[in-house]
Amino acid sequence: MNDAMTQLYQQVILDHARERHGYGLVTGHAGESFQVNPTCGDEIRLRVHLDTTGPAPLLERVSWEGMGCSISQASASVLTDLVRGVSVAQADELAETFRELMNSRGRSLSSAKDEMLGDAAAFTGVAQYPARIKCALLGWMALRDALAHALTQAPPAEEKNGMNNDD
């Protein structure tokens, strides 16, 4: 298959798409979000589980279920590994950095940011395909939304949020 495709579909992405970390919803969550990408019908339900015993809340784990393309599934899987045990503020920073990567048109970010993103840096190539950026962002949007719900104790949004491009 051609180089552009092996660039886009890095081995990390293919592996995570096949073996999705964090897959399967777990109860005892502090917040939940359901997101759909109406263009292709991809959807994800993601829960955040907080550890509030310390001074600042920690993101103990993420659990999720959903269906979608390899990019969206792998992105949610990588996210699960990345945010395990980090503070809510760090999770937010990761989400923001990943968004920046998706807006980078395929250029890598600074090496510090790259390092921070870990396996998620493998999605650099996705930013060259505008139609796929939404796929990679779906899980991250769900994470931010679920955290927002957890922190405000608001009931989870059942409605589709944010993305709209029904064609």
Binding site: M1, C69, Y129, C135
Partner: peptide, 8 residues
Amino acid sequence: HPHDVGQI
């Protein structure tokens, strides 16, 4: 997934 089929 169809998206991946289309991409290839």
